[in-house]
Simulated scan of single mutants.
Amino acid sequence: MSATRPLHLAVALDGPAHCGAEHYTELAGLAERGALDFVTLGDSFARPGLDALAVLARIAPGTRRIGLVPTVTTTHTEPFHVSTAVATLDWVSRGRAGWSVGVSATEAEARLFGRRPAAPLGALWREAGEVADVVARLWDSWEDDAEIRSAETGRFIDREKIHHVDFEGASFRVRGPSTVPRPPQGRPITVVDLTGTGEPGRRVAARHADVVLVRAASPEEAARTRALLRREAAGHGRDPGSLRVLVSLAVDLGESESVPHPGLGAGRRLAAPAAHFSGGPVELAELLARWHRGGAADGFHLAPIAPHRDLERIVNGTVALLQHRGLFRTFHPGGTLREHLGLARPVNQYATAATGGPA
């Protein structure tokens, strides 16, 4: 593994729904002990269960380093509320928040709100891209030093450092500014999972995502997808080196280590759309190391089939072996999710414009 290209690992906390924080706190703490970059928690209006963002906000005080990335649905949700909710998660976690961009495509979900009918996937992802754009603007609507908090003068903020965003999308308008100060990370991490999104989701990812989750049945397929995303990001004027592409992999570590189930663990191609590994922690470590060394991806997003059992084996088996071989870190390099991912804190676009630099 190149010293300039570290391996990134994340894990999904999804599984049977639990109506309590203890289950998720225990899993997130286990992932944190393995020095993983972040955990994700899925969410959708199409199924019952707790709100993912609220759950991760609840467990934030019970963790110290691990990144926290809930799915937040942009369809039927006000962009202003998305912005303030994710910013609040970044504040309560002291800079460890991200959000995974979600859309809501069914008529049943639309009826829950009653404001408009379901829309085609392309339109939903165009709207999601606009939400990602305006959310970043709202996070920047407060400059970092906008808060004064002076008891002597009675001034709480410097109004010259609070900015209106004046954004008009296809289905919403947002003037701003935010009611929440700029988050500790400047902008919390934006994640886009390309599963089932097609080209519309990929366009949003190339333009707005910090982390992209992809499915691939072979390292060659993963490498092609990563190269395409990096080219498209560069086409939007972004530094392609700032994009982290992680391969999503369903993991079942309940099988014998010596006889992996046919699939990625056995070195065979697996039919899309989902990649699945069944075998032991050692084979999984070898798979991750081989794909990463070959340049297939920047890391992996692992989805344990049996959350407690498989995550424990991932951390105590697979991750421990990667650490022993010097292929994965033994501690978090900083306190924020951006630091875990090796991403710089973004410059505030409005503060830069105010000083005469590029917007």
Rank of each mutant, 00 (worst) to 15 (best):
A10G: 15
A21F: 02
L27D: 01
A28Y: 15
A31N: 04
E32L: 05
G34H: 01
A35G: 07
A35R: 05
T40P: 06
L41G: 11
G42C: 09
D43Y: 13
R47W: 13
V55G: 10
R64I: 08
I66E: 07
L68V: 06
V69T: 07
T74Q: 08
T74R: 03
T77W: 02
P79Y: 13
P79A: 09
P79K: 06
V86K: 00
V92E: 07
S93F: 04
S100M: 13
S100P: 01
V103E: 02
T106A: 06
T106G: 08
R111W: 07
P117L: 05
A118G: 09
P120I: 03
P120S: 04
L121I: 03
A128W: 01
D133F: 04
V135Q: 12
L138Q: 11
L138D: 12
D140M: 10
W142I: 14
W142R: 13
A146N: 04
E147D: 05
R149D: 08
A151N: 08
R155D: 15
E160F: 01
K161N: 05
F167A: 08
F167R: 01
G169K: 02
A170S: 15
F172E: 06
R173W: 01
P177Q: 03
P181V: 13
R182P: 09
R182W: 14
R187C: 13
G196Y: 04
G196R: 00
E199K: 00
P200E: 01
R202N: 00
R203F: 04
V204P: 03
D210Q: 12
V214I: 15
A223S: 08
R224Y: 05
R231I: 08
E232M: 04
G237F: 07
D239F: 05
D239R: 04
G241H: 08
V245L: 05
S248V: 10
E257I: 11
P260M: 01
H261Y: 11
G265Q: 02
G265A: 08
A272D: 14
G279W: 01
G280I: 00
P281H: 05
A285H: 02
A285G: 05
R293A: 15
F300A: 04
F300L: 11
D310C: 11
D310I: 07
E312Y: 00
R313N: 06
N316Y: 07
A320W: 00
H324P: 03
G326V: 14
F328I: 04
R338G: 12
V347K: 07
Y350W: 10
A353F: 08
A354I: 03
G357P: 03
G357S: 06
P358W: 09
